[in-house]
């Protein structure tokens, strides 16, 4: 199993990056400003790229360098740029009506991390991986998932929801770099391109929302019920 073969220094480096990206997710949870979300997402993507390169270096997977470069390019530059372009004409700088105040969201996020840790450590005991970097990878993966869903439920602005979805994906991508670094290159590249298309589609839909519905807040999407 690959995660047990990393040298201690590498494992600590991976842990550091994983924890840092988790913290960036909390930055998103704790802020109301859309711009903060986008910067935090971009920073998280850069961290994931560093992680890919580091795993590639220590694990001996040269193809991960390609992934690292593509991650920086797509997730770190193009996606944040596209989302900034979506936000700019909207005249919405921050979340107005949040379902849960940022402070309460932070607490909820903390509970999500604890839950993720319990699940991850339980799983890793069964797999004989207790105490390895795999526990942390699983924890971060699960917590980013839960935090992404939390953002989707408590934030109403269209752009926050898109970023919530991207956080979900970031979590998977981050964990996948540590747990399954040997995942075929083709799949990872296709998923990266797929994300790009997803964001473009979201951009078009947000434009429809603001021109045909007159608002980009999910609170105004209340016609279809029952």
């Amino acid at each position: 199993m690959i995660v047990t073969t990393f040298p201690p220094l590498a494992a600590s480096l991976f842990s550091l990056i994983a924890i840092a990206s988790l913290l960036l997710a909390f930055v998103m949870l704790g802020s109301r400003w859309l711009r903060h979300y986008i910067y935090a997402f971009a920073a998280e993507s850069w961290l994931i790229a560093v992680l890919s390169a580091a795993v590639g270096f220590y694990g001996g997977f040269p193809e991960l360098y390609v992934i690292a470069v593509l991650t920086v390019l797509f997730r770190g530059c193009i996606l944040p740029y596209l989302i900034l372009r979506i936000v700019r004409p909207l005249d919405v700088a921050r979340e107005v009506d949040v379902g849960l105040q940022p402070s309460s969201s932070l607490v909820a996020g903390a509970f999500a991390v604890i839950f993720a840790l319990v699940v991850a450590s339980h799983l890793s005991v069964g797999l004989g991986l207790a105490g390895t970097v795999a526990v942390l990878a699983l924890t971060v993966m699960l917590s980013l998932k839960l935090i992404g869903f939390l953002m989707l439920t408590v934030r109403h602005e269209a752009v926050s929801q898109v970023l919530g979805l991207l956080v979900l994906e970031n979590g998977i991508f981050l964990g996948a770099q540590i747990l399954v670094p040997g995942m075929p290159l083709l799949i990872e590249i296709v998923i990266l391109f797929d994300l790009l298309i997803v964001v473009v589609c979201f951009g078009i839909l947000v434009r429809y929302l603001s021109s045909h519905v007159g608002s980009t807040s999910a609170l105004s999407l209340n016609r279809l019920v029952g």
């Binding site: 998932k145 992404g148 869903f149 989707l152 269209a158 929801q161 919530g164 979805l165 979900l168 994906e169 998977i172 997803v198 589609c201 979201f202 839909l205 429809y208 929302l209 045909h212 519905v213 007159g214 999910a218 999407l221 016609r223 279809l224």
Partner: peptide, 21 residues
């Protein structure tokens, strides 16, 4: 392009993308 259609499309893509992740 009716407001209802856009609303349905938005809910569709958000819910399903969340699920599919």
């Amino acid at each position: 392009r009716a407001p209802e259609s856009i609303e349905a499309a938005w809910k569709y893509i958000i819910v399903v993308s969340g699920g599919i992740s």
